[in-house]
């Protein structure tokens, strides 16, 4: 990894941790917290997304599972840390079953099956009203201060980022890349592709479920639509792919870009918010297209600073 990239990463993550500790109250507190949560979702999405090429449209399933397990534990009388441990364990079991089921699917089918799982969980949480509060959702009292919640979330982001870097540099990361290139060829040279996929998906699922429970602890409320949220899944996907930078920088910068763009568009402009956001998405996609064409490459080279 180049020195500038390491220092850059340190600056971003450090700034987020300091912001989390410094701004815990008011709107800025919520803004920083949602930035961190989106970061955890995008980085964890990117683990199988980047190495295995698996695009999940239902990454928020794990987020919702974590939130609901935590919420139900609290309503059953558990305090914060026992509820946290219990919900991480329960979510891990749930995530294991889901990943075991879906790990064998091809790319397109995997995307859609994950979407299906998300919808099933959304409907189940609406139907099991006595446990989940139905479509109104669960409301829990404050179990941990906002400051502590922000700090825990910031450390979870650091841990997820570290997990991303370590995984991609490990033997399993290489296995994943081989599996993505050709599953048959990978198996022929003795790579246990199914295990690789399951491991990668589990590493991705656990931070997402922890993000869900921290989100509930911070906001006191989760509903089927906000917990098993398609918007959150799509934001994670966009954040992971919108900035064409390799490694951990891609999703981190993606989250910064998307969260900042949404913030400005939805608070500073009256009307045509979606259209403006759409234009940003289009521009980002076109930028990738322009980069890939000969003419575009030549044009970009003229403006590049310090490229070797």
């Amino acid at each position: 990894m180049k020195i500038w990239r390491i220092s850059f990463l340190t600056v971003i993550l450090g700034a987020l941790v300091i912001s989390a500790a410094y701004f815990s109250e008011g709107y800025l507190g919520i803004f920083v917290f949602s930035l961190i949560i989106n970061g955890i979702m995008a980085v964890s999405f990117d683990i199988p997304g980047r190495s295995l090429g698996l695009i999940s449209l239902g990454h928020a399933t794990f987020f919702g599972m974590g939130a609901y397990c935590f919420g139900i534990s609290i309503t059953q009388g558990f305090t914060f840390f026992p509820a946290l441990i219990l919900s991480v364990l329960l979510s891990a079991v749930g995530a294991f079953i889901i990943t075991l089921l879906l790990a064998g699917l091809g790319h397109g089918y995997y995307s859609l099956a994950t979407l299906g799982v998300l919808i099933v969980f959304q409907r189940l949480s609406e139907t099991l009203e006595s446990l989940t509060g139905g479509s109104a959702g669960l409301y829990i009292p404050e179990t941990i201060s906002k400051l502590h919640c922000n700090i825990l979330a910031a450390f979870l982001l650091l841990a997820t980022a570290a997990g991303h870097v370590l995984y991609s540099r490990s033997r399993w990361g290489l296995y994943s890349k081989e599996t993505e290139a050709s599953e048959e060829a990978a198996e022929a040279i003795g790579i246990p592709t199914r295990k690789v996929k399951t491991a990668s998906l589990m590493i991705s699922a656990i931070p997402a479920s922890m993000a869900g429970l921290l989100h509930l602890a911070r906001t006191s409320h989760v509903s089927p639509v906000s917990g098993f949220s398609l918007t959150l899944s799509i934001t994670a996907l966009l954040a992971s792919r919108i900035v064409p930078a390799r490694g951990i920088l891609g999703p981190l910068l993606g989250v910064l870009l998307i969260t900042a763009a949404e913030e400005v568009i939805w608070t500073k402009f009256e009307g045509f918010n979606h259209a403006l956001f759409g234009l940003i998405l289009l521009s980002a996609a076109w930028y990738q297209g322009v980069q890939s064409s000969e003419a575009g490459l030549n044009l970009i080279k003229k403006f590049r600073v310090g490229e070797k």
């Binding site: 966009l238 259209a275 940003i280 289009l282 890939s292």
Partner: peptide
């Protein structure tokens, strides 16, 4: 000019952008 998987993701993002623009229109 993008590879197949990159092309799928890029066109997916672009079409999502178009969907958002159309909504407001």
């Amino acid at each position: 000019n993008l590879s197949q998987s990159e092309g799928v993701v890029a066109s997916l993002i672009a079409s999502l952008g178009v969907a958002f623009i159309l909504e407001d229109l």
